Lab assay of single mutants.
Amino acid sequence: MVDYIVEYDYDAVHDDELTIRVGEIIRNVKKLQEEGWLEGELNGRRGMFPDNFVKEIKR
């Protein structure tokens, strides 16, 4: 799994989504079957977030 950095703020709409803020690092990200969404861990919580608000961290 890979990590992503947040490029744009996003406020969660549903309980299974993450609220993300610019500059945060989302860890252990995986792609979901639902197009346009990823799932990852942030601040001890796992949830979904839109893939166009983040950028993969290349290592």
Rank of each mutant, 00 (worst) to 15 (best):
Q33L: 06
A12H: 00
H14S: 14
Y4R: 05
I20M: 13
L32R: 13
I26W: 02
D15K: 11
H14E: 13
R59Q: 14
I20T: 02
D51M: 10
I5E: 07
I57N: 15
D9A: 11
V2E: 13
L32K: 14
D3G: 05
I26S: 02
D15P: 10
R46V: 09
G36S: 06
E35P: 14
V22N: 03
K55A: 07
E56K: 14
N28I: 00
L32V: 15
G23W: 00
Q33I: 06
F49L: 08
R45A: 07
V29E: 08
Q33C: 09
E7L: 13
D15R: 10
D51I: 15
Y4C: 09
M48A: 14
E56P: 15
V2P: 09
I25E: 04
M48G: 06
V13G: 12
G36E: 03
R45Y: 06
E7H: 03
F53W: 13
T19L: 02
M48E: 03
T19N: 08
D3N: 14
K55H: 07
E39M: 07
K55F: 00
L38P: 00
R59P: 15
Y10H: 07
I25Q: 06
G44K: 01
F53C: 15
R59K: 14
T19P: 02
V29A: 12
E39N: 05
L32D: 08
D16L: 10
E17C: 05
V6L: 00
G23T: 02
Q33Y: 08
E34M: 14
F53H: 15
I20P: 02
Y8W: 10
V2K: 15
K55Y: 07
D16E: 11
Y8F: 15
L38W: 07
M1W: 09
Y10Q: 00
D15L: 10
L42C: 13
V6D: 00
L32T: 07
L38F: 11
V22Q: 15
E41V: 04
I20G: 01
G40K: 04
E35Y: 08
N28W: 01
N43D: 04
E35Q: 12
K58I: 09
N28G: 13
E24C: 03
I5D: 03
L38R: 03
T19W: 00
E17K: 04
E24V: 00
D3H: 09
H14R: 14
E41T: 08
Y8H: 15
N52V: 15
V13P: 02
K58Q: 15
V13R: 10
L32Q: 11
Y8P: 00
G36F: 03
A12I: 02
G36R: 09
E39C: 13
L38K: 07
V22T: 12
D16K: 11
N52D: 08
M48S: 14
A12N: 03
R27L: 08
E35N: 14
N52K: 15
E35I: 12
D3K: 07
V6W: 00
K58R: 13
V29S: 05
R46E: 05
E41C: 06
Y4F: 11
R46Q: 07
M1Q: 07
R45K: 11
A12W: 00
G23R: 01
D15Q: 13
I5T: 06
